[in-house]
Computed example of a mutant assay.
Amino acid sequence: MIKIKSGVSKLCFSILILFTFSCEDKRNLVSIEGNIVSILKNDSLNLIIELHDNGNVKKMISKRKDSILVISYFDTGLINEYIPTLAGKKHGEYLLYDESGRIKKKVKYKEGSRHGDTFEFFYDTYSLSQRLYENDDAIYSSVYMEGEKIFNSPIPVFEDEIFDSSSYEALITFPFKFKGEIEIYFRDSLDFDKTLIDKYNMRLRINNFKNDWPQYEIRLVYEPSEDDTLIETDFVYNRSIDSDRVK
Protein backbone atom coordinates (compact mmCIF):
# COMPACT_ATOMS: atom_id res chain seq x y z
CA MET A 1 0.00 0.00 0.00
CA ILE A 2 1.36 3.45 -0.91
CA LYS A 3 0.23 6.67 0.77
CA ILE A 4 1.41 9.80 -1.03
CA LYS A 5 1.07 13.43 0.06
CA SER A 6 1.67 16.55 -2.00
CA GLY A 7 5.19 18.01 -1.89
CA VAL A 8 6.98 14.79 -2.74
CA SER A 9 9.61 15.43 -5.42
CA LYS A 10 9.57 13.56 -8.72
CA LEU A 11 12.92 11.98 -7.82
CA CYS A 12 11.60 10.74 -4.49
CA PHE A 13 8.43 9.37 -6.09
CA SER A 14 10.50 7.59 -8.76
CA ILE A 15 12.63 5.99 -6.04
CA LEU A 16 9.51 4.75 -4.27
CA ILE A 17 8.10 3.22 -7.44
CA LEU A 18 11.40 1.55 -8.40
CA PHE A 19 11.93 0.19 -4.89
CA THR A 20 8.39 -1.12 -4.58
CA PHE A 21 8.26 -2.94 -7.91
CA SER A 22 11.86 -4.21 -7.89
CA CYS A 23 11.29 -6.30 -4.74
CA GLU A 24 10.39 -9.95 -5.20
CA ASP A 25 7.93 -9.72 -2.32
CA LYS A 26 5.37 -7.08 -3.26
CA ARG A 27 4.02 -6.79 0.31
CA ASN A 28 5.52 -3.35 0.94
CA LEU A 29 4.13 -0.47 3.00
CA VAL A 30 5.14 3.02 1.89
CA SER A 31 3.98 5.89 4.08
CA ILE A 32 4.81 9.58 4.42
CA GLU A 33 4.65 11.62 7.62
CA GLY A 34 5.65 15.23 7.12
CA ASN A 35 8.99 15.22 5.29
CA ILE A 36 9.78 11.59 6.16
CA VAL A 37 9.07 8.71 3.78
CA SER A 38 9.30 5.19 5.22
CA ILE A 39 9.23 1.88 3.38
CA LEU A 40 8.68 -1.33 5.30
CA LYS A 41 9.03 -4.83 3.91
CA ASN A 42 8.08 -7.93 5.90
CA ASP A 43 7.94 -5.88 9.14
CA SER A 44 11.55 -4.68 8.79
CA LEU A 45 12.56 -1.13 7.89
CA ASN A 46 14.37 -1.05 4.55
CA LEU A 47 14.37 2.57 3.43
CA ILE A 48 13.84 6.03 4.96
CA ILE A 49 13.76 9.15 2.82
CA GLU A 50 13.84 12.62 4.39
CA LEU A 51 12.93 15.62 2.23
CA HIS A 52 14.02 19.24 2.17
CA ASP A 53 11.24 21.82 2.41
CA ASN A 54 11.50 22.33 -1.37
CA GLY A 55 10.67 18.64 -1.94
CA ASN A 56 14.17 17.51 -2.91
CA VAL A 57 15.64 14.53 -1.12
CA LYS A 58 17.62 15.52 1.99
CA LYS A 59 18.69 12.10 3.23
CA MET A 60 18.22 8.45 2.29
CA ILE A 61 18.89 5.60 4.71
CA SER A 62 18.74 2.10 3.26
CA LYS A 63 19.14 -1.05 5.32
CA ARG A 64 19.92 -4.61 4.27
CA LYS A 65 20.71 -7.00 7.14
CA ASP A 66 23.72 -5.50 8.98
CA SER A 67 24.54 -3.00 6.21
CA ILE A 68 23.21 0.56 6.38
CA LEU A 69 23.89 3.17 3.70
CA VAL A 70 23.26 6.85 4.50
CA ILE A 71 23.28 9.36 1.63
CA SER A 72 22.63 13.04 2.31
CA TYR A 73 21.91 15.75 -0.27
CA PHE A 74 22.04 19.52 -0.53
CA ASP A 75 18.69 21.25 -1.10
CA THR A 76 19.75 21.69 -4.73
CA GLY A 77 19.52 17.92 -5.19
CA LEU A 78 23.29 17.35 -5.41
CA ILE A 79 24.84 14.71 -3.18
CA ASN A 80 26.57 15.90 0.00
CA GLU A 81 27.73 12.77 1.83
CA TYR A 82 27.86 9.03 1.19
CA ILE A 83 28.31 6.89 4.33
CA PRO A 84 28.35 3.07 4.09
CA THR A 85 28.26 1.15 7.40
CA LEU A 86 28.39 -2.44 8.57
CA ALA A 87 27.20 -3.49 12.05
CA GLY A 88 27.06 0.17 13.09
CA LYS A 89 30.60 1.03 11.91
CA LYS A 90 31.80 2.80 8.78
CA HIS A 91 32.77 0.17 6.22
CA GLY A 92 33.61 0.79 2.58
CA GLU A 93 34.31 4.03 0.73
CA TYR A 94 33.11 7.22 2.43
CA LEU A 95 32.59 10.24 0.14
CA LEU A 96 32.11 13.94 0.94
CA TYR A 97 31.12 16.44 -1.78
CA ASP A 98 31.00 20.22 -2.02
CA GLU A 99 27.93 22.17 -3.12
CA SER A 100 29.01 22.14 -6.77
CA GLY A 101 29.13 18.33 -6.87
CA ARG A 102 32.90 17.88 -6.63
CA ILE A 103 34.44 15.32 -4.27
CA LYS A 104 36.11 16.97 -1.26
CA LYS A 105 37.14 13.86 0.63
CA LYS A 106 37.38 10.14 -0.04
CA VAL A 107 38.12 7.68 2.77
CA LYS A 108 38.28 3.88 2.81
CA TYR A 109 37.01 2.26 6.01
CA LYS A 110 37.18 -1.29 7.30
CA GLU A 111 34.92 -2.13 10.25
CA GLY A 112 35.10 1.40 11.64
CA SER A 113 38.82 2.03 11.07
CA ARG A 114 40.46 3.92 8.24
CA HIS A 115 42.16 1.30 6.11
CA GLY A 116 43.49 2.20 2.68
CA ASP A 117 43.81 5.51 0.86
CA THR A 118 42.32 8.80 2.06
CA PHE A 119 42.20 11.73 -0.36
CA GLU A 120 41.35 15.39 0.26
CA PHE A 121 40.83 17.70 -2.72
CA PHE A 122 41.56 21.45 -2.56
CA TYR A 123 40.23 22.94 -5.78
CA ASP A 124 41.16 26.57 -5.00
CA THR A 125 44.85 25.63 -4.93
CA TYR A 126 44.67 22.73 -7.44
CA SER A 127 46.14 20.45 -4.79
CA LEU A 128 45.50 16.96 -3.48
CA SER A 129 46.45 15.43 -0.13
CA GLN A 130 46.80 11.66 0.22
CA ARG A 131 47.20 9.52 3.32
CA LEU A 132 47.47 5.76 3.48
CA TYR A 133 46.07 4.10 6.61
CA GLU A 134 46.47 0.63 8.07
CA ASN A 135 44.02 -0.21 10.87
CA ASP A 136 43.52 3.52 11.60
CA ASP A 137 47.28 4.26 11.71
CA ALA A 138 48.56 6.69 9.07
CA ILE A 139 51.59 5.03 7.43
CA TYR A 140 52.23 7.25 4.38
CA SER A 141 51.46 10.81 3.34
CA SER A 142 51.83 12.74 0.07
CA VAL A 143 50.78 16.06 -1.45
CA TYR A 144 50.23 16.86 -5.13
CA MET A 145 50.08 20.31 -6.70
CA GLU A 146 48.62 20.60 -10.21
CA GLY A 147 49.15 16.86 -10.67
CA GLU A 148 52.81 16.86 -9.59
CA LYS A 149 53.98 15.31 -6.33
CA ILE A 150 55.63 17.95 -4.12
CA PHE A 151 55.84 16.03 -0.85
CA ASN A 152 55.81 12.48 0.46
CA SER A 153 56.86 10.68 3.60
CA PRO A 154 56.50 7.28 5.21
CA ILE A 155 54.92 7.83 8.64
CA PRO A 156 56.24 5.99 11.70
CA VAL A 157 53.99 3.90 13.91
CA PHE A 158 54.86 3.64 17.60
CA GLU A 159 54.45 0.31 19.36
CA ASP A 160 55.26 -1.07 22.83
CA GLU A 161 55.52 2.42 24.34
CA ILE A 162 56.57 2.44 27.99
CA PHE A 163 57.47 5.45 30.12
CA ASP A 164 57.96 6.49 33.71
CA SER A 165 59.11 9.68 35.41
CA SER A 166 62.56 9.62 33.79
CA SER A 167 62.59 7.40 30.69
CA TYR A 168 60.61 6.52 27.58
CA GLU A 169 60.89 3.49 25.32
CA ALA A 170 59.19 2.59 22.04
CA LEU A 171 59.49 0.47 18.94
CA ILE A 172 59.38 2.77 15.90
CA THR A 173 58.23 0.90 12.82
CA PHE A 174 57.44 1.86 9.22
CA PRO A 175 54.65 -0.39 7.83
CA PHE A 176 54.90 1.39 4.45
CA LYS A 177 57.67 -0.42 2.61
CA PHE A 178 59.81 2.16 0.80
CA LYS A 179 62.66 1.50 -1.64
CA GLY A 180 65.03 4.27 -0.57
CA GLU A 181 66.69 5.04 2.74
CA ILE A 182 65.36 7.01 5.68
CA GLU A 183 67.41 8.74 8.38
CA ILE A 184 65.89 9.57 11.77
CA TYR A 185 67.16 12.50 13.86
CA PHE A 186 66.27 13.81 17.33
CA ARG A 187 66.91 17.12 19.07
CA ASP A 188 70.30 17.52 20.77
CA SER A 189 68.50 18.23 24.05
CA LEU A 190 67.35 14.61 24.17
CA ASP A 191 69.54 12.03 25.87
CA PHE A 192 68.59 9.03 23.75
CA ASP A 193 69.73 5.63 22.55
CA LYS A 194 68.49 4.18 19.27
CA THR A 195 68.99 0.62 18.06
CA LEU A 196 68.41 -0.12 14.39
CA ILE A 197 66.74 -3.50 13.87
CA ASP A 198 66.37 -3.15 10.09
CA LYS A 199 65.48 -0.33 7.68
CA TYR A 200 61.84 -0.45 8.79
CA ASN A 201 62.21 -0.93 12.57
CA MET A 202 64.13 0.84 15.33
CA ARG A 203 64.07 0.79 19.12
CA LEU A 204 64.23 4.15 20.90
CA ARG A 205 64.98 5.00 24.52
CA ILE A 206 64.88 8.57 25.86
CA ASN A 207 66.80 8.75 29.14
CA ASN A 208 65.81 12.29 30.21
CA PHE A 209 62.10 11.99 29.52
CA LYS A 210 59.69 14.10 31.61
CA ASN A 211 56.13 13.05 32.39
CA ASP A 212 54.74 16.48 31.53
CA TRP A 213 56.10 16.44 27.96
CA PRO A 214 53.17 16.74 25.54
CA GLN A 215 55.26 15.58 22.57
CA TYR A 216 58.72 15.21 21.10
CA GLU A 217 60.05 15.82 17.59
CA ILE A 218 61.44 13.37 15.07
CA ARG A 219 63.12 14.57 11.90
CA LEU A 220 62.76 12.19 8.95
CA VAL A 221 65.01 12.57 5.92
CA TYR A 222 64.15 10.32 2.97
CA GLU A 223 66.58 9.60 0.13
CA PRO A 224 64.90 7.85 -2.82
CA SER A 225 66.48 5.05 -4.81
CA GLU A 226 67.04 5.31 -8.58
CA ASP A 227 63.77 3.58 -9.54
CA ASP A 228 61.77 5.08 -6.66
CA THR A 229 58.28 6.59 -6.99
CA LEU A 230 58.93 8.64 -3.84
CA ILE A 231 60.77 11.95 -3.89
CA GLU A 232 63.41 13.35 -1.52
CA THR A 233 61.83 14.64 1.68
CA ASP A 234 62.96 16.38 4.88
CA PHE A 235 60.07 16.23 7.33
CA VAL A 236 59.59 16.94 11.06
CA TYR A 237 57.08 14.66 12.77
CA ASN A 238 55.65 15.53 16.20
CA ARG A 239 54.99 12.48 18.35
CA SER A 240 52.24 13.31 20.86
CA ILE A 241 52.52 11.67 24.27
CA ASP A 242 49.14 10.56 25.58
CA SER A 243 49.37 8.80 28.92
CA ASP A 244 45.95 7.23 28.37
CA ARG A 245 47.24 5.43 25.26
CA VAL A 246 50.74 4.56 26.42
CA LYS A 247 51.00 1.29 28.31
Rank of each mutant, 00 (worst) to 15 (best):
172 I>W: 00
237 Y>C: 01
29 L>R: 12
33 E>Y: 11
94 Y>S: 03
205 R>M: 12
5 K>D: 14
32 I>W: 01
131 R>H: 04
45 L>Y: 07
127 S>K: 06
239 R>F: 09
147 G>N: 09
94 Y>E: 06
60 M>P: 01
200 Y>Q: 03
7 G>R: 11
58 K>L: 10
199 K>W: 07
91 H>E: 06
101 G>L: 10
216 Y>P: 00
12 C>M: 08
131 R>C: 08
121 F>E: 08
215 Q>S: 15
79 I>V: 15
202 M>A: 10
95 L>I: 11
145 M>P: 00
8 V>E: 10
128 L>D: 04
116 G>M: 02
185 Y>I: 01
164 D>W: 10
212 D>H: 12
217 E>T: 02
234 D>W: 03
91 H>M: 04
25 D>H: 09
140 Y>E: 06
145 M>Q: 11
92 G>P: 04
148 E>Y: 08
76 T>H: 05
64 R>C: 07
205 R>G: 02
135 N>C: 03
224 P>E: 06
226 E>I: 14
117 D>P: 02
36 I>N: 14
89 K>H: 08
244 D>F: 10
123 Y>A: 08
215 Q>I: 00
213 W>T: 02
9 S>F: 10
16 L>K: 07
51 L>P: 01
131 R>E: 14
1 M>T: 12
15 I>R: 13
212 D>R: 07
9 S>G: 15
75 D>C: 06
70 V>F: 01
106 K>V: 04
31 S>E: 13
22 S>K: 13
54 N>L: 05
77 G>H: 09
205 R>I: 12
170 A>F: 00
10 K>G: 07
201 N>Y: 01
127 S>Y: 02
112 G>A: 05
13 F>E: 14
